[in-house]
Amino acid sequence: MLELVIFSTLNGVLYGMLLFLLASGLTLIFSMMGVLNFAHASFYMLGAYFGFQLSQWLNFWTALIVAPVLVGLIGAGVERWGLRTVHKWGHVAELLFTFGLAFVIEELVQMVWGKLPVDYRVPPLLDFPAFELFGTTYPAFRMFMLLISVAIFLVLLMVLTRSRIGLIIQAALSHPNMVAMLGHNVPKVFMLVFGCGCGLAAIAGVIAGPALVTQPSMAHVLGPILFVVVVFGGLGSLPGAFIASLLIGLIQTFAIAINYSLGDALASLGMARPLQGVLSDLWQVTVAQIGPVVPYLMLVLILVFRPTGLMGTRES
C-alpha cells in the first residue's frame, strides 16, 4: 500500500507540475487580456514537435533551450500582429481568433509531421532508472521533468514578486490604464507575457514529449483540463494555479488507484447491491473509471460556490 501511495504521489505531482507549466502562462494571459487562449495547449504541442525535430537535427539539450525560444517568438508574433488587431473588435472576436488558431496549428502540425505519433525518445543520458523502491524503479527522465518544472516555478515566482518587470506585470493585470499613464508600454508588456507564456508551454512540451506521446491530438487532450486549472485556481493567481495543478494531478492519479464503487458504499452500509435494472451498471462503476471526469466536476462546483476560484479576487 505504501509503495502505491509513494508512486502515485510522485506521478501525481509530476503531472500536476506539467499542468502548472502550461497553466501559469495561461492564467496570466487570461487575467491580463480577459480572454481564454484556446490555442495555449497548441503551443505546448508545437514545443513538443519543435523539441522532437531539433533533437533529431542537433540534440535534446539544444532543443530544450531553442524550441521554447522559437515558440515564444511565434507567440509574441501572434499577439503583436494577430490578437492586438483583433482586440479592437472585442473579447468575442479574440476568443474566436484563438479558437481558430488552435485548429490551424493542429492542421499545420499534421501537414508537416503527419498524423502518426513521432518517435521522440528520451535522451540516452537520462535513460536509466533513477532509484528503486520496493522493487519498482522510477525513470531518471521523470525526475528530470519534475526538477525542471519545480525550478521554473521558483524562477517565475521570484521574477513576478521580486523584480521590477514582475511588479509592472502584476500592476498591469488589474490596472492597465494606470500603468500606461505612468509611462509604461502596456501593449509591450502584453506581448512579453504572451510570448513568455507560450514559451513556458513549449518547455512543458519539450520535456513531456518523450514521456507522453508526441502526436497531433496532444493539444486536444490537455486543453480542456487547463481551463479547469485556471478557473479553479482563480484568475491571474499564480499560487492558485499552482495549487489547482497539483490538486488535479494528484486527484487524477490517485483516482486510478481506488477501486471503490457506489455498490461497495451500499454494501459497507449493510445494504444489498442493486444488480438488476437499468441503473445496475452505475453502481458498479469504480472511482478509477470516473477519475477523468472529477476535474470537470470540480470546475462546476467551484463556479457555483466560489466563482472567483480558489485564490482569485475577481470574477472575470
Partner: peptide
C-alpha cells in the same frame, strides 16, 4: 486509446 501514461496503472498492478 486515451491514456498516454500508464505509470499509475503499473503502480497499482505492482501494489
Amino acid at each position: 486509446a486515451k491514456i498516454t501514461d500508464f505509470a499509475p496503472y503499473v503502480a497499482k498492478i505492482k501494489a
